[in-house]
Computed example of a mutant assay.
Amino acid sequence: MTEQPSTLYAKLLGETAAITWQELQPFFARGALLLVDGAQDLIEVAQAVAQNDQEKVAAWLAAGILSKADDSRAEDLLTRDPELWAVVVAPWVLAQERIERAPLH
């Protein structure tokens, strides 16, 4: 990517932080938690949600890249307690489990 990130992208990136499932549970209980597939750019998804890009968001929802947290996923996250990253795009909190990637050689 040769262009500078947009102001919104940079703002969202600066607001992204590590978080525990315990801290996310109140958002899950309110139905305000969206989970982003670990292979996707969390900030790109957050930016599309913030900009109300219905076409992108609908495609990600249909593909399962973006989903509302359900009870089985919540139980899994509670049991495993993985490292999560989250960003707020009111009224939503978008969270993502970090995937460890092998270093490139």
Rank of each mutant, 00 (worst) to 15 (best):
Q51R: 15
E55R: 12
Q40V: 07
A62I: 08
D41C: 03
L42D: 02
Q54C: 07
L77M: 11
V36G: 11
N52M: 02
G64P: 14
L77T: 00
A50C: 03
E55I: 10
S67R: 14
A58Q: 14
A62M: 06
D76L: 13
A58D: 15
T79R: 14
D76Q: 12
A59G: 09
D37K: 15
W60I: 01
V57I: 15
A62W: 02
D37S: 11
D41W: 10
L35A: 12
Q40P: 00
G38E: 08
Q47H: 13
E75G: 01
D53T: 00
A63V: 06
Q54K: 06
L42Y: 05
D70W: 07
A59T: 04
A62T: 12
L42F: 04
R73A: 01
G38W: 04
L42C: 05
R80M: 07
L35G: 02
I65Q: 09
S67W: 11
D76A: 11
R80Q: 12
A48M: 05
E44F: 06
G38C: 07
A59S: 08
W60E: 03
A74W: 13
R73D: 01
A69N: 07
L42S: 09
Q40F: 08
V57N: 03
N52G: 03
L77C: 02
T79E: 10
E75V: 08
S72K: 15
G64D: 12
A74T: 03
N52T: 07
I43M: 14
L42G: 15
E44Q: 12
A58M: 08
D71C: 05
A48E: 08
A39S: 03
V36P: 07
E75C: 02
K68R: 15
V49D: 00
V36D: 02
R73V: 03
A39G: 12
I43C: 13
L61Q: 14
Q51M: 06
S72Q: 09
W60Y: 04
K68G: 07
L42E: 10
A63P: 03
D53Y: 09
L61W: 04
Q51W: 02
A74D: 10
A59M: 04
V45Y: 13
D71S: 14
D53S: 05
Q40C: 13
G64S: 13
T79C: 08
W60R: 10
L42W: 03
T79D: 11
Q54H: 15
L78D: 00
S67C: 09
A58E: 14
Q51P: 00
W60N: 12
E55S: 08
Q47T: 13
K56A: 12
V57G: 00
L78Q: 06
D37M: 06
L35S: 02
Q47V: 10
W60D: 11
R80K: 06
A59N: 05
A69C: 14
A39K: 06
Q54E: 10
Q40W: 05
R73E: 00
A50I: 01
A48R: 12
V36S: 07
K68E: 02
I65R: 03
E44T: 01
L66Y: 03
D37L: 09
S72A: 10
A50Y: 14
W60T: 04
V49H: 02
A50P: 01
D41E: 13
L42N: 10
A69K: 05
G64E: 08
V45Q: 11
R73M: 11
R80L: 13
L66I: 01
A69P: 00
A74C: 07
L61P: 02
K56S: 11
